[in-house]
Design a binder for these strands. Structure first.
Ligand SMILES: [Mn+2]
Ligand SMILES: [Mn+2]
Ligand SMILES: [Mn+2]
Ligand SMILES: [Mn+2]
Lengths: 243, 243
DNA sequence: ATAATTTTTTAGGTATGGCTAAATGCTACT
DNA sequence: AGTAGCATTTAGCCATACCTAAAAAATTAT
């Protein structure tokens, strides 16, 4: 699992996979931002990964990269390892949810296939990491995720928090503090005039809370079906409708 | 714990520490053998580690290396991580004792200080790894080890297995099979004439078993005090006599 | 003491994965 | 269509850590 690709290769593939979940191709600049390297470095690396045998991605000048099936397989392996490790650190070792990502970012490259499998067995094949992100299955199928950013909800709509971004520990601590965590049922209230902030109602006390757009766009929710409305956010996965 | 030294540096320091447990200095060739690299590569690395600020070892041409206090501190950190990980893989994840070393060899470079501490807490500060090797304490003191290779025992002498070499998984499986494991009480019998093999008696059935010198020199035992004899293998640690 | 053998070092090279600075290509606006 | 601004690529460089082959030093044998 780790011997075949270097740590740099693994991190590139992972980031390209994740960028391509939102865009059709991963641009040089996006990859550079995510990895914290210069665009020039990315160009060099993309050329190498495209030229490797077998090719891990396809690259066209000025148009970024998309993974080949082989590249995607490796990306899913490393994403599975990363998210399993986050679960393990959180559930078994008692890490807080804002501490797991950084540790997993290094460990993901060091664990063997057998160790990954043992961890998955111990945790009984968890389906989501501590931030709610889906874990690719044992045979590397990525579960569909039909969540949308909280700030794309229409006012008055009900939704359930599916996952939150795991990048910023500070954000995670804030979200834990206000209990805006996966599983939370909420209602988006009317927008604040002359503001990009957003008002929500959720939780036991059912009080309204205001969060900034910077936070709202990092929280992903599954909108609830509204009576009589064919929601534009319906979850259609392999022909089966989830609610 | 990991960010300060590269993986290569950590492995060099660890190997040099371990070679220096037996010899006063670690020679270029010994280090090369242990790490599986060429002597030329070792020469280059020793120069760099000696020139680094702070110096991690002292190196004199044609005379190998010894660690500085700073190098020793890093070596003990990585050895502690390695052995804690071996315990963890064995005790918590159910790894067999012949599988832990290879996995720990990679993980030791990836875990953070806090993760090491959590593992140590979970296992309640174990004192030995699954092969019986002592684990440096939290404040990086290496417990004294006064064991000797089994083949250096004098015939007729009683001893207790302290630890076994963890290098060769095949050897470990063989030792587990014949139950020659840490904690085993044994008696060295008379040597086999015209042979480098060794005869022992131990275990429940109390039957004699013959093992080759290649195996015997990888099994380390603590000789028992013989009545009336001031054993040459007495354990004198910091002025305190252990039995 | 000299010669043969082994060990270690030097010299020169490779692959990886970064960097900066300069050149080039794309895109959107006038 | 021309051009300004931005993104991307090219060119040249650096550090790490490994290699082989040849030279030199140390050790061992004669
Ligand atoms: Mn993560
Ligand atoms: Mn990573
Ligand atoms: Mn080991
Ligand atoms: Mn190692």
């Amino acid at each position: 699992m780790s011997g075949l690709a270097t740590q740099a290769t693994q991190d590139y593939l992972k980031v390209i996979y994740q960028v391509c979940e939102d865009h059709s191709r991963a641009s040089t600049g996006q990859i550079a931002d995510e990895l914290g390297v210069t665009p020039a470095s990315v160009t060099g690396m993309l050329k190498k990964l495209a030229a490797s045998e077998p090719a891990l991605l396809s690259y066209r000048k000025h148009q970024g990269a998309v993974l080949t099936p082989e590249g995607e397989r490796l990306a899913l392996q490393i994403i599975r390892s990363h998210r399993l490790l986050e679960c393990f650190l959180h559930d078994t070792l008692g890490y807080a949810w804002d501490e797991v990502h950084e540790e997993a970012e290094r460990l993901e490259h060091a664990i063997s296939g057998p160790l990954g499998r043992r961890i998955a067995d111990l945790l009984q094949e968890p389906e989501h990491d501590p931030h709610g992100a889906p874990i690719p299955t044992r045979d590397l199928q990525m579960p569909a995720d039909c969540s949308v950013p909280l700030d794309e909800l229409t006012p008055g709509q009900d939704a359930c928090v599916k996952r939150v971004s795991d990048r910023d520990p500070q954000l995670l601590r804030y979200l834990a503090e206000i209990s805006l965590i996966p599983g939370t049922e909420l209602t988006l209230l009317q927008p604040l005039p002359f503001s990009d902030h957003v008002r929500l109602r959720y939780g036991g006390d059912n009080e309204a809370i205001i969060i900034s757009a910077r936070v709202a766009c990092q929280v992903f929710v599954i909108p609830h079906q509204r009576a009589g409305e064919a929601g534009k956010h319906d979850c259609l996965i392999a022909g089966e409708q989830l609610t």
